[in-house]
Amino acid sequence: KELVSALYDYQEKSPREVTMKKGDILTLLNSTNKDWWKVEVNGRQGFVPAAYVKKL
């Protein structure tokens, strides 16, 4: 599985998104959309802005 690192804090703005803190390591589930990537963090799945994470 592919991992990404959070470059910035992000506070979810809808139920489809997830909150992350800078430095968090997230499991990348889907990166086909260039703007929003689906990740899993702390057992929750949702979307984060692609520009806020980088692949490890």
Rank of each mutant, 00 (worst) to 15 (best):
T27F: 12
V48W: 00
K13A: 11
P15Y: 10
T32P: 04
S31G: 11
P49Y: 02
T32L: 10
K38R: 12
Q11M: 13
Y8C: 15
T27G: 06
A50M: 05
N30V: 09
R16M: 13
K13V: 09
N30E: 15
N30L: 09
K1D: 10
K21F: 10
D35Q: 11
V18E: 00
S14D: 12
K54G: 11
A50L: 02
M20Q: 01
S5L: 15
K55L: 15
Q11D: 14
L26E: 00
E2Y: 12
K55W: 09
P15D: 13
L28I: 08
Q45Y: 08
K21E: 07
E12Y: 05
K13D: 06
L7G: 04
S31F: 07
L28R: 00
T19P: 07
E2G: 10
V18G: 02
L26K: 00
D24T: 06
P15L: 10
E40W: 06
A6T: 03
L29S: 02
W37V: 08
I25A: 04
P49C: 04
S31W: 09
M20A: 02
S14V: 05
V4I: 09
E40N: 04
W36C: 08
Q11C: 13
V4A: 14
L28P: 00
L56P: 06
W37P: 01
T19I: 03
D24G: 04
Q45C: 12
N30Y: 07
E12Q: 13
P15N: 11
L29T: 04
K55C: 14
E40V: 06
Y52W: 08
L7T: 07
S14G: 13
Y8G: 06
D9W: 04
A50V: 06
K34I: 10
L7S: 05
N33L: 09
K21W: 08
K55E: 09
K38H: 12
G43L: 04
K13Y: 05
K55P: 13
P49A: 02
S31A: 13
K22M: 10
L7H: 05
F47P: 00
N42A: 10
D35A: 10
K13Q: 14
N42T: 05
G43I: 02
F47Y: 14
K38I: 15
V4L: 12
V18N: 03
K1H: 14
T32W: 10
V4T: 05
G46A: 04
N42K: 09
K54N: 09
D24N: 06
K13R: 13
I25E: 05
E12M: 13
V48I: 09
M20P: 01
P15K: 11
K21S: 09
S14E: 09
Y52P: 02
N30A: 09
L29E: 03
K1M: 14
N30C: 14
D35P: 02
F47D: 04
G46C: 03
K13F: 06
K55M: 13
K55T: 10
K34A: 13
W36S: 02
A51C: 15
E40P: 00
Y8H: 12
